[in-house]
Simulated assay, not measured.
Amino acid sequence: MSAALLPKPQMRGLLARRMKFHLIGAFLVSMGCATLYKFGVAEPRKQAYADFYRNYDPMKDFEAMKAAGVLESAPPK
Rank of each mutant, 00 (worst) to 15 (best):
P75L: 04
P44M: 08
A34E: 02
Y53S: 06
A74W: 09
K46D: 15
K46G: 15
M11T: 14
Q47R: 14
V29S: 04
N55R: 11
S2M: 08
T35C: 07
M59P: 00
L71P: 00
Y49V: 08
D51I: 00
L14A: 13
Y56K: 02
K8P: 01
Y53E: 08
A3R: 08
P75C: 03
V70C: 01
L36A: 15
Y56E: 01
M65W: 03
A3L: 13
L15R: 10
A34D: 04
Y49E: 14
F27Y: 13
A50Y: 03
A68E: 07
M11L: 15
F39A: 02
A74G: 00
G25T: 13
E63I: 10
M31I: 11
A64I: 04
P7H: 11
R18D: 03
D51G: 06
S73E: 05
V29Q: 07
A3D: 12
F52W: 14
L28W: 10
L36C: 10
G40W: 01
P44G: 06
E72C: 02
G13Y: 04
A42I: 03
R54W: 06
G40C: 02
L71I: 15
R45Q: 15
S30L: 15
D57F: 05
K20A: 15
F27S: 11
L6F: 08
M11V: 12
A3P: 00
Y37M: 09
Y56H: 11
L28Y: 09
R17L: 13
L6R: 11
L28F: 12
E72L: 07
A74L: 15
A42Y: 13
V41H: 07
A16R: 04
Y53Q: 03
F27K: 12
I24G: 00
M1H: 06
Q47L: 10
